[in-house]
Each structure stands twice: as C-alpha cells, then as structure tokens.
C-alpha cells in the first residue's frame, strides 16, 4: 500500500480562530481526509463529538467557554460520549512542561505545538494510527496510558496496582 486511506477517516477540528481551522483543514484535505467537521468553541465541539462521532479530534486548548482540556475530559468520562477512546490531538501554543502534563492528565493522546507544520500533523496522525497507547481506568483518570512509549523499559513494580485505587490497563485502543 502506498499511503493511508485518509478518505475513510472522520476528523473533528476545533479552534476558535477561523484562520487556524482553515490551515489545519487545508492540510487534512490535502492528505485526503474527506469527512471533516469543525467547531469554533468548546461547547460546539462537545456537540459535534456527540453528533459526528469522529475517529480523531484535533482540539485547541485555549477557548472561551469550555476549554480544550474540559472537552477532552467530557470525551473521556461523560456518560453521553459516543466513544471515550477517540484519539485527541491537542493543538496549542502552550509548550511548557506543566501544560503538557495537564493535557496528559486530561486524557490527551498527542500534543501538537503551534506553529503548525505539515510534517507535525502527519506525525501526530501517524502516532495515533500506528502506535495507539493502551487505555487506563482508575478512580481519578480514564484515558491513554500516561507513560510514554518505551514503557517496556520500566522494570519496577506495577505502581498503579500498588496504589490504593484499583486500575484497569489495556481496555481498548481507539
């Protein structure tokens, strides 16, 4: 096979800036994505998730109303979510470690830092297609395993099992 069959993919693009939405959508269309949905704020994004049931969500962080982290948490934990496993790629100008950690704790699969480039978008899509992380459920978290790839290198005891809260690993991918 010569390339991904992107025409089969349903992608939701969420950004309050219309120019950034157009930029990302242009890249996706050139990749061959046909089924593209867009939302200009967090509230509309949450509606779009429930109505369109996308395969991938590209989500801005900083928006009025529901922000990207809150939308991601709804996708993962709301009883109304159509698919709690849907891969979420967070698109943001934040690049500091504490922000990346906060995104990870909200259940984000991949982090796409602005400025946006074609290769970066492809790389994040390829990551959720080719190397999906197992999902973890604890009392306080549901989402992709927050240990980065290469987790086989960790040889210590299973810390989640040792913790007071019960956990389940590897429920499903995307």
């Amino acid at each position: 096979m010569s390339g991904y069959r992107f025409e089969r993919l349903r992608v939701l693009v969420v950004d309050d800036n219309p120019h950034m939405r157009k930029l990302v959508i242009t890249i996706l269309q050139a990749f061959g994505v046909v089924h593209i949905f867009e939302a200009c704020d967090g509230d509309k994004a949450w509606s779009a998730v429930r109505e369109a049931n996308p395969d991938v969500v590209i989500l801005d962080w900083m928006m009025a109303g529901l922000n990207g982290l809150e939308v991601a948490q709804l996708i993962r934990t709301s009883p109304q979510t159509p698919n709690p496993f849907v891969p979420v790629i967070m698109l943001t100008g934040y690049t500091t470690v504490d922000k990346v950690r906060a995104a990870r704790d909200a259940g984000i699969n991949e982090f796409l830092a602005k400025p946006v480039s074609v290769k970066a978008v492809m790389s994040r899509l390829a990551a959720v297609i080719e190397q999906p992380r197992p999902y973890v459920r604890t009392k306080s978290y549901f989402g992709p395993c927050r240990r980065r790839r290469g987790q086989d290198e960790y040889k210590g005891p299973e810390r989640r099992v040792l913790a007071a809260e019960p956990s389940t690993v590897g429920a499903a991918a995307n």
């Binding site: 390829a126 080719e130 999906p132 991918a173």
Partner: peptide
C-alpha cells in the same frame, strides 16, 4: 494489545 481500529480503517505506512 487491544485491537487497533484506526489502523484497520486507514491502513498502515512504513
């Protein structure tokens, strides 16, 4: 590993 639905849908590229 759990099933990879996206890969099944869009294929894989080296």
């Amino acid at each position: 590993m759990p099933p990879n639905i996206l890969k099944a849908k869009v294929g894989s590229v080296a």
